[in-house]
Design a protein around this nucleic acid. Sequence first.
DNA 1: CTTCTCACA
DNA 2: TGTGAGTA
Length: 130
Amino acid sequence: MKIGELAKRTEVPTRMLRYYEEQGLITPRRQQNGYREYDEYLVDRVKKIRGLLDSGIPTRIIGDMLPCLNQPQEIVVADPDPELREMLVRERDRMTERIALLEHHCHALTKYIAAMDRSLAATTEIRLPQ
DNA sequence: CTTCTCACA
DNA sequence: TGTGAGTA
């Protein structure tokens, strides 16, 4: 399929698909006219990439993770690269920190929303007697 | 419609 | 990490 169709099916703009390619995350074949030609399996792959990116994982880490993502379920690592392991540990810890931060701000929003609701309830009470 | 690159937030 | 503009 061409880039437009992949964009539609993955909800990822064509601009981003080219960007992922530039970052070495996907490598589509080329048609004779130079247009990118995407295989079916790339639909799933792009969705996974989006998910990881949305989780705040940098593209270079995603690139290192892609081989693992292809193999289904029980991950078997033939050659456990210590450096890669260390990088993944750092990434996981970063993620844990972000989760804590998100929870903090989530609670803050909840309190603010509650304050707004109280304010609304108060103005409603004032209007009722009128 | 597709391709590319350069600049920029 | 992504976008916008201009090109062909």
